[in-house]
Computed example of a mutant assay.
Amino acid sequence: MLRTSALRTGLVATAVLAVSVGCTVQPGGSGPLTDARPGGTPVGARVTPGNGPAEPSRTESGEPSARPAADRTTPPPPPPAPSESAPETAPDPAPEPEEPEPLMASGDESEQVRELQARLRQIGHFDRAPTGYYGSVTAAAVSSFQTKRGLDPTGETDAVTWERLLAMTDRPTRDELRPPTTKPVAKPDPRCLKGRVMCISKNSRTLSWMVDGTVKSSMDVRFGSQYTPTREGTFAVGWKSRHHVSTLYDTPMPYAMFFSGGQAVHYSADFAARGYEGASHGCVNVRDETKIAALFDEVRTGDKVVIYW
């Protein structure tokens, strides 16, 4: 009886103690006691946000597991704010090579220009007598020469053009620099090769005074218009008149040498002033008074006159 009372007393005391420390008994009384945290969370359980600090989880070996890499990675810094920079500019273009200064160009007038024209005439690029003036005709002749030689056809004479021309031509003679006629003298007609002849070419518009096939002097001439043409053929000087004046047209005909009726070779002041813009009334006009005066003194009555194309 005493043993049973004492056992009951112990069981009651144990129950009271269990209630006082907050422990619970598993249903059925067979399971172990578990620790409880304030709020009732058992030991070893993870704490969700709001339940307090979480315990580190452990691996199978019992060591704390590493925190996920995402938890350790520092977030990347924000991209830098765009900065204002100077606008990109295209690089300066390479400077163009300087063109060589021309030795001679349009508007120049010199003895070197006269030599240029004479040399171009030697190789068929200039068909007039050198004047020493660099005009449009000379520029065109230089351009033609440059094109044929593969040079830039500027029409201006630079050092390269000049050196190439010097290498291809001879030093001009006095007659080449100052020829007696504007255009080259024509090849003499066969009728001009014997005796004393005024050999006159309508094609080249030149007169050559020839003695036994040798040209003694040459000069520019012009002829009559289509309404008063100069006759062609072989004639002879009928008479001469140094200070002649036309009775038909009342115009001076100095140094006149008549060869066919009223047609004569003579000096023409109009030809000297106007050039080939005018025409005669059938005569052969000469514009160089000095040359026709000298010819007048050379020619004799009866000397031959040949007019041909």
Rank of each mutant, 00 (worst) to 15 (best):
G52T: 07
R231M: 07
R128W: 03
A90P: 10
Y308V: 02
T24C: 00
T301D: 14
A269K: 15
G39T: 09
A66S: 13
M257H: 06
Q26S: 14
K304S: 14
S5H: 09
E163P: 03
S201R: 10
I292H: 04
Y276L: 07
T301V: 15
P76M: 03
P184R: 07
T41Y: 12
P49N: 01
T181H: 04
L7P: 06
R231V: 15
L207F: 06
V185H: 11
D158A: 04
G155Y: 06
G224A: 00
L177C: 05
P102Q: 13
N285M: 06
P252A: 09
T24R: 10
G107H: 05
P188F: 01
G213F: 13
T14G: 03
D152I: 12
T157F: 01
T251I: 13
T74K: 03
D127L: 04
S241E: 14
Y227E: 15
P27Q: 12
E63A: 11
E289M: 11
Y227H: 12
P56H: 09
T154H: 09
W309L: 05
N203P: 02
D175Q: 07
P184Q: 08
R196V: 14
A70V: 12
G44K: 08
G10Q: 13
R164C: 00
D170Y: 12
G39I: 07
Y249N: 10
A94R: 13
S136I: 08
V16K: 02
A36H: 10
G44A: 11
A54Q: 13
E55G: 03
H125F: 14
H244R: 10
T48N: 05
G238R: 09
H243I: 01
Y267S: 08
V47F: 02
T154R: 00
D220M: 06
V113F: 09
